[in-house]
Amino acid sequence: MTIQDGDTIKIDYTGTLDDGSVFDCSADHDQPLEFTVGAGQVIPGFEEAVRGMEQGEEKQFRIEPSEAYGEYDESLAQQVPKNILRSDMQIEEGMMLLVKTPDGQEIPARVTRIGDEEITLDMNHPLAGKALNFSIKVVDA
């Protein structure tokens, strides 16, 4: 029986970037990834890749940024005055902060640069602009 929309499946996976570095692996979570195909619970390219597979089947595939986390958007990296942060807050490059939008929504932002008067916050997903390579095995379908 092949996997189709509406099926709940479990996948063992390893995700790597083009340089070979691992960005995520189901073994790190001590259990397979479980999701319902077609429900939008995983990135579009991942859903497309599992359709038509069968239990026990293994596959390797690549997902371009447009079918993953999108292209990197320079406008989402913004410099803001350092004094908008609490004075007791210790900030470091690479740390994640929650930023409030004008409509009150909170979104994650990564500190990418710390200057004397300003910091740069990047609100792109950390994997935006990157192609993702996967090695997967369907463990339950």
Rank of each mutant, 00 (worst) to 15 (best):
Y69E: 07
A49E: 09
M53G: 05
M96S: 10
R51A: 08
E34N: 01
L127G: 10
D19E: 12
M96L: 14
K100Y: 07
A141I: 01
M95V: 09
E57W: 03
A109Y: 03
E71N: 13
M96A: 06
R113C: 00
E34Q: 04
P65E: 09
D88A: 14
T36K: 14
F134D: 10
F46S: 09
H29V: 03
E58L: 00
D140T: 02
A109L: 05
G38E: 06
G70P: 09
E64A: 10
T120G: 02
L85V: 06
M53Q: 08
P44V: 05
M89N: 07
P108E: 05
E106L: 15
M96K: 07
I9C: 01
Q78I: 15
D19A: 04
A109S: 13
P81A: 14
R110K: 14
D7I: 02
E64Y: 03
M53I: 01
Q60L: 03
G94K: 08
L97V: 15
L97C: 05
T14S: 12
A39M: 11
D12L: 09
D73R: 14
L98K: 15
E67I: 00
D88M: 12
A131M: 03
Y69P: 03
A77M: 10
D30H: 13
Q4A: 13
A109Q: 04
G70S: 09
E74T: 11
G104K: 07
G52Y: 08
H29T: 07
Q4H: 11
L132Y: 01
D18E: 15
T8A: 01
D122G: 05
F46C: 12
E92T: 12
M123G: 02
T36Q: 14
G45D: 08
A77D: 07
V138W: 00
I136R: 02
L97F: 08
A68W: 00
F134W: 07
P32L: 03
T120I: 07
P44I: 06
D30L: 14
A39Y: 06
Y69Q: 05
G38S: 09
L17H: 07
L76A: 08
G70M: 12
G40A: 10
F134M: 06
E58R: 07
Q78Y: 00
R62D: 11
G94A: 11
A128P: 05
D116G: 06
V37A: 08
A141Y: 00
T2S: 09
I11Q: 02
T16R: 15
R110S: 14
V50I: 09
K100Q: 09
R110N: 07
E67S: 12
G20C: 10
G115F: 05
Y69T: 01
F23I: 15
N83R: 13
L17N: 10
G45S: 06
K100S: 14
L132R: 08
K59Q: 12
P126G: 05
I114Y: 03
